[in-house]
Computed example of a mutant assay.
Amino acid sequence: MSDTKLPWHFWAVGILALVWNGFGATDYLMTQLENRGWFAFMGMDEATTDVALAWIAAQPAWMSALWALGVWGGLAGALLLLARNRLAVPAFLVSLVGAAGSFVASLQQEVPPELEDFGGGAIMYVVIVLAVFFTWYAWTMRNRGLLH
């Protein structure tokens, strides 16, 4: 491990990655568990939650797998980055592949009108930009010898 002092932004980016990907992992888990309290927390009423659950249940398994790769890869990447472990790079890369696959798949889907205000749209661009950023950042920190 390098004795090089960590730049000020290392902890800021690491904590941002942890919070962002932690929220994504929580969303994935609560959705897969069909936690109605989570859907209410996200602003959905009972009728909209019913539509969302039916729509999600109708999705092919590979779409859920891409989503899982995105969120769990990102969470692993954030934890590994904060631990200064070089495996943060491939973990964030897995997250990027999952996020990109989910994004492409979402462009091919017709979203029920009741769900248009929840997820998708602009948030998918934010997901992709942050996945690229976190991957690049971990790669840069590894190349500077700050991850071991």
Rank of each mutant, 00 (worst) to 15 (best):
Ser2Ile: 04
Ser2Leu: 05
Thr4Pro: 00
Leu6Arg: 07
Leu6Tyr: 08
Pro7Lys: 06
Pro7Tyr: 07
Phe10Leu: 09
Ala12Asn: 11
Val13Asp: 02
Val13Gly: 02
Ile15Phe: 13
Ala17Met: 03
Leu18Gly: 01
Trp20Gly: 01
Asn21Thr: 10
Asn21Tyr: 14
Gly22Met: 01
Gly22His: 01
Gly22Lys: 01
Phe23Asn: 07
Phe23Glu: 05
Gly24Ile: 03
Ala25Asn: 08
Ala25Trp: 09
Asp27Lys: 09
Leu29Phe: 13
Leu29Glu: 02
Leu29Val: 13
Gln32Val: 15
Gln32Ala: 15
Arg36Glu: 07
Trp38Val: 06
Trp38Met: 07
Phe39Ser: 10
Phe41Cys: 00
Met42Leu: 12
Gly43Met: 05
Gly43Phe: 04
Met44Ser: 10
Glu46Gly: 01
Glu46Val: 12
Ala47Val: 10
Ala47Arg: 11
Ala47Leu: 05
Thr49Ile: 06
Asp50Lys: 05
Asp50His: 00
Val51Asp: 03
Val51Leu: 06
Ala52Gly: 02
Ala52Asp: 06
Ala52Glu: 09
Leu53Phe: 07
Ala57Trp: 12
Ala57Pro: 11
Ala57Ile: 13
Ala58Lys: 11
Ala58His: 04
Trp62Val: 10
Ser64Leu: 11
Leu66Arg: 00
Ala68Ser: 11
Ala68Tyr: 03
Leu69Glu: 04
Gly70Ser: 12
Gly70Tyr: 11
Val71Asp: 01
Trp72Gln: 03
Gly74Phe: 07
Gly77Asn: 06
Leu80Ser: 01
Leu80Phe: 12
Ala83Gln: 15
Ala83Met: 15
Arg84Thr: 09
Asn85Pro: 07
Asn85Tyr: 08
Asn85Gln: 13
Arg86Lys: 15
Arg86His: 14
Leu87Arg: 12
Pro90Ala: 14
Ala91His: 04
Leu93Ala: 15
Leu93Pro: 00
Ser95Arg: 00
Val97Met: 10
Val97Asp: 03
Gly98Trp: 08
Ala99Met: 10
Ala100Gln: 06
Gly101Arg: 12
Ser102Asp: 05
Ser102Pro: 01
Ala105Thr: 05
Ala105Leu: 07
Leu107Ile: 14
Gln109Tyr: 06
Gln109Met: 15
Glu110Asn: 14
Pro113Tyr: 07
Leu115Ser: 12
Leu115Phe: 14
Glu116Lys: 15
Phe118Tyr: 15
Phe118Met: 06
Gly119Lys: 10
Gly119Thr: 11
Gly121Trp: 03
Ala122Lys: 12
Ala122Val: 14
Met124Phe: 02
Tyr125Phe: 15
Tyr125Ala: 09
Val126Cys: 00
Val127His: 02
Ile128Met: 13
Val129Ile: 09
Val129Ser: 00
Leu130Tyr: 07
Leu130His: 04
Ala131Pro: 02
Ala131Cys: 13
Ala131Asn: 12
Ala131His: 10
Val132Phe: 14
Phe133Asp: 00
Phe133Leu: 04
Phe133Lys: 00
Thr135Phe: 04
Thr135His: 00
Thr135Ala: 09
Trp136Pro: 01
Tyr137Gln: 08
Met141His: 05
Met141Tyr: 05
Asn143Asp: 15
Gly145Pro: 05
Leu146Ile: 09
Leu147Asp: 05
Leu147Asn: 04
Leu147Met: 04
